[in-house]
């Protein structure tokens, strides 16, 4: 059932955010992240919160999905907060031997936690409302200027989308190979690190051989369908900005302007 896992956690519903151009969402996310570092006061974070909550609401994705991404960074979050609480110099609120908590430390920790959490939730909104394919297309288009400096933009995008297609297949295959070897008495779970690394050989060899074989087959299938790089290629789904994208850009830029004003005014 590993095939059911969609990479990039796309959540299929129809919403305004889902219908936006991936480039709009990508740039919007970047600007939102920038605003998180511009804001540094509580009223500022209030504005960011308002913006984020409206986006969550507009995306029509259940809130629980938004916070799933946080689990992955939980440890980092904890360490960051701890560092800030205990290591920021300033007005001491509580002390026990060398360990002390300062007022500034608490503020700083709170600020870092908010930034990290909003950053993760903000980018989750993008990945939850954009299929990996759209994201690849969007990135390809945004990176287009890099072609001038000979960055193989089309090839990178093509590789990314092929990887997206094959990761679930290879995951399922990993599962099957493991089972086939466990049926022969292989052990992937016990032993020290060296024994475990050695134990992976019966898994990795068949997996790599299969991956190479697939790559070979796929290359041939692509050639048979006249693939010869990005030259002279047209697109079935070319990206075109629509009215709603312009509106979205306006909103995001206004939001960013607010954060700049807050920063300049020191609010």
């Amino acid at each position: 059932m590993l095939r059911d896992i969609t990479l990039g956690q796309y959540y299929p519903v129809d919403s305004v955010l889902h219908r936006l151009d991936p480039r709009t969402k990508f740039i919007g996310t970047l600007l939102f992240v920038a605003s998180l570092f511009l804001f540094h006061t509580f009223p500022g974070y209030g504005v960011a919160t308002l913006f984020l909550v409206s986006m969550i609401f507009l995306s029509r994705v259940p809130v629980s999905f938004m916070f799933k991404g946080l689990r992955a960074i939980f440890v980092i979050l904890l360490i960051t907060v701890a560092f800030n609480i205990f290591l920021t110099p300033g007005r001491v609120l509580w002390q026990m031997g060398a360990v002390k908590i300062t007022y500034e430390g608490l503020i700083q920790a709170g600020r870092m936690a908010v930034r990290l959490i909003y950053l993760v939730v903000g980018s989750s909104i993008m990945t939850l409302t954009t299929t990996p394919n759209q994201l690849t297309d969007g990135l390809e288009d945004l990176m287009r200027p890099l072609k001038v400096v000979r960055v193989p933009v089309h090839e990178i995008a093509m590789m990314m989308s092929i990887a997206l297609r094959f990761i679930p297949i290879l995951m399922e295959e990993t599962d099957k190979i493991m089972k086939a070897q466990i049926a022969r008495g292989a052990d992937f779970e016990t032993g020290n690190i060296f024994q475990r690394a050695k134990g992976l050989v019966p898994l990795l060899v068949p997996l790599f051989i299969s991956a190479f074989r697939r790559a070979d087959d796929l290359a041939m299938a692509m050639e048979a369908r006249c693939y010869h790089g990005g030259e002279g290629r047209t697109q079935m789904k070319p990206l075109r900005y629509k009215g709603r994208d312009m509106a979205a850009y306006c909103i995001v830029i206004m939001y960013l302007a607010v954060s700049v004003v807050f920063r300049v005014r020191g609010i």
């Binding site: 990996p132 087959d217 796929l218 299938a221 692509m222």
Partner: peptide, 19 residues
Amino acid sequence: DNQIIGTVVEEDVGFGPEN
């Protein structure tokens, strides 16, 4: 499995004409 390039059915079918 080894000849479908697109992650969505219609995009795969469009691959040849795109090329």
